[in-house]
């Protein structure tokens, strides 16, 4: 399976999903005009990847700023992953944020609150 690499722009994050290492990275700011359109290929790649992997997968989120549409997409992703972990997949999410960015930390906690199976680590730097 091919890796997914999307360079960052002013309004969209850097995305580097590596199917071999199982490290999926999303980094930067996310306020695309059309979040569904931007994240569609990302979601598709993720679904396809999850269909064929049984290896340990790590999702690294390092998002400084994101809009509401993006938070909806993230919730959808976390729901999918939660379900996968329930069914036996080994997945971990790392929500990385600046220790001084209270909002980013609190948003991480909001996401974490609704998950039942998916390990969700808030990692401060």
């Amino acid at each position: 399976m091919q890796n997914l690499l999307i360079e960052k722009t002013n309004s969209t994050p850097y995305i580097n999903f590596n199917a071999v290492s199982g490290v999926l990275q999303i980094k930067g700011e996310s306020f695309p005009e059309n979040a569904a359109k931007f994240y569609n290929p990302v979601m598709e790649w993720l679904r396809e990847y999850l269909d064929c992997t049984s290896e340990q997968t790590t999702l690294d989120f390092e998002i400084v700023y994101f809009n509401s549409s993006t938070s909806k997409i993230f919730m959808t992703i976390f729901d999918v992953l939660d379900e996968e972990v329930k069914n036996g997949k080994k997945i971990v999410v790392n929500w990385r944020c600046d220790g001084e960015n209270e909002t980013a930390i609190e948003c991480g906690e909001e996401f974490e609150e609704d998950l039942r199976y998916l390990p969700f680590n808030i990692i401060l730097f």
Partner: peptide, 20 residues
Amino acid sequence: KILLRQMMKIVKMADKTQLD
């Protein structure tokens, strides 16, 4: 219920970000 909970969270996060 689940989707409503999501929506509440989204609004909460958006409010916080907008205040920042």
